[in-house]
Write a protein that binds this DNA or RNA. Sequence first.
DNA 1: CAAAAGACGATAAGCATTATCGTTTGATAA
DNA 2: TTATCAAACGATAATGCTTATCGTCTTTTG
Lengths: 149, 149
Amino acid sequence: MLIVFCGILNFVEQTFRQLCADHGIAMTHQRQVLYEVMQGMEGHPSPEEVYARVKKKVPAISLATVYKNIHLFVESGVFRKMSVHHGSVRVEMNSKEHHHMVCSRCKSITDIGEKELGLSPARRKLADGFLVERYAVDVIGLCAKCQQT
Amino acid sequence: MLIVFCGILNFVEQTFRQLCADHGIAMTHQRQVLYEVMQGMEGHPSPEEVYARVKKKVPAISLATVYKNIHLFVESGVFRKMSVHHGSVRVEMNSKEHHHMVCSRCKSITDIGEKELGLSPARRKLADGFLVERYAVDVIGLCAKCQQT
DNA sequence: CAAAAGACGATAAGCATTATCGTTTGATAA
DNA sequence: TTATCAAACGATAATGCTTATCGTCTTTTG
Ligand SMILES: [Mn+2]
Ligand SMILES: [Mn+2]
Ligand SMILES: [Zn+2]
Ligand SMILES: [Zn+2]
């Protein structure tokens, strides 16, 4: 029984070890727990929410470690960000109907018209040589709960 | 000449007074300068960038006032936000291709498949009674500059 | 013009995030 | 296995962005 249990644990660890190898990152205990906890979370948790859950399994873990590893996971392609984070709020003065090109590296924001965009992910190059990685379509509106008030 | 100049100033002020009336907000000097400065800015400035410019015209203005009025402008519909601000970074564990419904009030984020979304702004109601206000399509990728490195 | 309501400026406080640094751990080779 | 060393960790200070508070000043309204 104990042997079987250890065998399962070992298999899980081997799996994560492989995943780390595939993504070119080192394997640590904290990293493994973090990965498993995140994998098991619904929705789009914030670093604090992830931290709260991981602390239950590794009470000594630091919030800084959670941040560091979330970034590592995102940069190495294990997970990805829901959207590009701009740090501060950005205001729109252009009242024309338009969308945006957002650089995933420098986070620059450039307007792009609906026609130029086309909305078919076939186009891989856009105005000014912008290289498309993906489209992030956010549907903005009111959820059912917020409509009631 | 002076009369003509004052006439122009008065006309500009009257215009802004009208805009305030239209949007149901009070008219103040700081608000007017802020509006004119923002109107004249390119791109998607941060509150700090707006503050830096306004300070040149109204040196005594406070950063808090800039924030308060940017919010006021956004809430009263004079300007709008480039995207919904989530405060903290959100991570995506769902590896399926999908988009998001983001509530403009409570900022909740819900997954939505490409098919269910349709991408034609004709649909005004979506899953769970989500009421569509607008689509925010962000094209994520690398700008020309960032591709060079 | 006077009173009331609202806006302003200064500044403290509150999150989110990053940087620093001394200690611990994991990968590698003897 | 053990020694070595780079990398990762934990604690915590620092920073950046934003909001709250509060006393003073300006608009608005009558
Ligand atoms: Mn824009
Ligand atoms: Mn999602
Ligand atoms: Zn770039
Ligand atoms: Zn809502």
